[in-house]
Simulated scan of single mutants.
Amino acid sequence: MKQEMVNNPEFQTLLTQVLEEKIPFCHLLGVKVASLDPDRPRLQFDMREELLGNFAQGMLHGGVIASVLDSVAGIAILLKMAALHPKEDVFSQLREFGLMSTIDLRIDYLQPGKGASFTANAEVTRLGKRVANVLMDLRNEKNERIATGAAAFMLHGRT
């Protein structure tokens, strides 16, 4: 019988390592896993000088915001697939991450990206056989909404 994958400690540990250490761009941004809740995963990162887009105003670069929202969307899809369609083993489940790609990403920048730390979360709104849709949100440590996003991902090889 398949163990519930999303609560499998090995799966959670390896997924965290993949995101925080194995994906070079996420590592560069300093992204950390805050929650692997399959209904609303959260990623966090701290403001650093290297992430500034407007150095005079101390605001996050828009590309950082888009990248983190894209990343949390991918994690949300992987967790939803693990919850609804668990694989036989942890490594087969993690391979699903490599079989998805962003096909549409929309970001609404609501206010300047100012803050000391930021949290991104996502919710899968549709998990189809070939396409998944996700809504995302980025807030600072004061819980001020900085940006929202919507994405569609192609699920390659899913049947």
Rank of each mutant, 00 (worst) to 15 (best):
M1T: 12
Q3I: 01
E4P: 05
M5P: 08
V6E: 10
N7H: 15
P9F: 12
E10N: 03
Q12R: 13
L14E: 12
L15W: 05
V18G: 01
L19K: 11
L19I: 15
E21M: 04
E21V: 01
K22S: 12
I23Q: 09
P24S: 07
P24D: 04
F25R: 01
H27A: 04
V33F: 07
V33L: 02
L36G: 10
D37N: 15
P38I: 11
P38A: 08
D39M: 05
R40A: 15
P41R: 00
P41G: 03
R42G: 01
R42F: 04
F45T: 00
E49V: 04
E49R: 04
E49F: 07
E49A: 13
L51E: 04
L51R: 00
L52K: 07
G53A: 09
N54Y: 04
F55S: 10
Q57Y: 02
G58S: 13
M59H: 07
M59G: 14
M59I: 08
G63I: 14
I65L: 06
I65T: 14
V68S: 00
S71V: 02
A73Y: 03
A73N: 09
A76Q: 10
L78A: 08
L78P: 09
K80I: 06
M81G: 11
M81W: 06
P86N: 06
K87M: 03
E88W: 11
E88F: 07
V90A: 08
F91A: 02
S92L: 12
Q93K: 05
L94Q: 07
L94T: 03
L94D: 09
L94A: 03
R95P: 00
R95F: 10
F97P: 06
F97M: 13
G98N: 12
G98P: 02
G98M: 14
L99M: 13
S101E: 03
S101C: 05
I103Q: 15
Q111Y: 06
P112V: 09
P112W: 14
G113S: 01
K114R: 14
G115E: 07
S117L: 01
T119H: 04
A122G: 10
A122K: 06
E123Q: 14
E123G: 00
V124K: 03
V124I: 06
T125H: 02
R126V: 01
R126S: 12
R126W: 05
L127W: 09
G128W: 13
R130G: 01
V131I: 15
A132Q: 10
N133P: 00
N133W: 15
V134S: 01
D137W: 03
L138Y: 02
N140R: 03
N143T: 00
N143R: 00
R145Y: 00
A147M: 08
A151S: 15
A151H: 03
A151Q: 14
A152G: 11
F153L: 11
M154Q: 10
L155M: 08
H156I: 15
G157W: 08
R158P: 06
